[in-house]
Simulated scan of single mutants.
Amino acid sequence: MRKKLRVAAYAICVRDGQLLLARSPVLNGDGFEWVLPGGGMEHGEDPYDTVVREVEEETGYLVEPTGLLGIDSSHHLFPGRFGRGVDHHGVRLVYEARITGGELRYEAHGSTDMAAWHPPDDVPALTRVSLVDKGLALWRERPAAGRVVGPVDVQE
């Protein structure tokens, strides 16, 4: 089984009581899900620079990370074709960030197809990845250890 480590950085951007999210096609091509703006770190890139670059790519906004809210780790085994699966470990740094410039626009030819502002109370009704809920929990709770353990209820 092939081992893959992916380190990524994401932003929680809240402005005027609204949360910025990006929309991504589901991997199997059947629908869409909302994600935190952000993405994979390039080799040699600082995570701070990663979140700034990725938010601009996906949303058009320039951001300033104002704090590291926490780190989320995920581990999944994915079956592969011809018996060669992937043991995937994702390490996701979640920053709080403020918009400093730019204008909302959609990413062309990227991993997302649009970005939009959502009231946090509307998030539970959205089709979304679990990192959205974990990011909101980090933002709301600001745990000293920088991690949220177990299932997250975004209504809390």
Results as ranks from 00 to 15, higher is better:
R128E: 05
V123D: 05
R81N: 08
L62M: 12
E45C: 05
S111I: 00
H43W: 10
F78M: 07
E58W: 03
G67Y: 07
L77S: 10
V86S: 04
D49Y: 04
L62W: 08
G60Y: 02
C13S: 04
V51G: 00
T112I: 02
R53C: 05
G102P: 04
M41E: 12
R147K: 11
G102I: 01
V154A: 14
S111Q: 06
G83M: 04
Y106Q: 12
L36R: 00
Q18L: 08
V63Q: 02
K4F: 08
V86M: 07
P143C: 08
R105E: 08
V152T: 03
L93C: 05
D72V: 11
R147F: 11
H75V: 08
H118D: 04
V129W: 02
P143Y: 03
R142A: 12
A22M: 08
G80H: 04
V26N: 10
H88N: 11
G70R: 00
E57G: 12
R2M: 06
R84N: 12
R84D: 10
A116S: 13
G80I: 05
D113T: 09
F82S: 15
L93A: 14
I71G: 04
L19R: 01
D87W: 10
Y61T: 06
A97F: 00
G67A: 15
T112Y: 03
G83F: 04
Y48N: 11
S74R: 15
K4I: 13
D121F: 07
K4T: 07
L19D: 02
S130A: 14
M1H: 05
V152P: 00
T127N: 09
S24G: 09
V152F: 04
K134I: 14
G80S: 06
V132N: 07
F82C: 08
L104H: 02
P151V: 12
Y106A: 15
L27I: 07
P124W: 07
V94D: 00
R15N: 03
S130R: 12
H43A: 13
Q18K: 14
I71N: 06
V51P: 01
L126R: 03
M114S: 14
Y61I: 02
H109S: 13
E42G: 09
E33N: 13
S111L: 04
G80T: 03
L104P: 02
E96Y: 00
G44V: 00
M41R: 13
V148F: 01
R2W: 02
D121E: 15
Y10R: 04
D72Y: 01
D49L: 13
T127G: 05
D72Q: 10
D153F: 15
P65R: 07
H109N: 14
E141L: 15
H76Q: 13
H118N: 08
R53L: 04
S111A: 07
E141W: 10
S24N: 13
D122S: 14
R53I: 03
R6C: 06
Q155A: 11
L62A: 09
G29D: 02
V149W: 09
L27F: 12
I12W: 00
A97V: 01
E42M: 14
D46H: 12
E57L: 14
E64I: 06
S130N: 11
H43Q: 12
P25W: 09
L126G: 03
S111D: 05
V14K: 03
V91I: 14
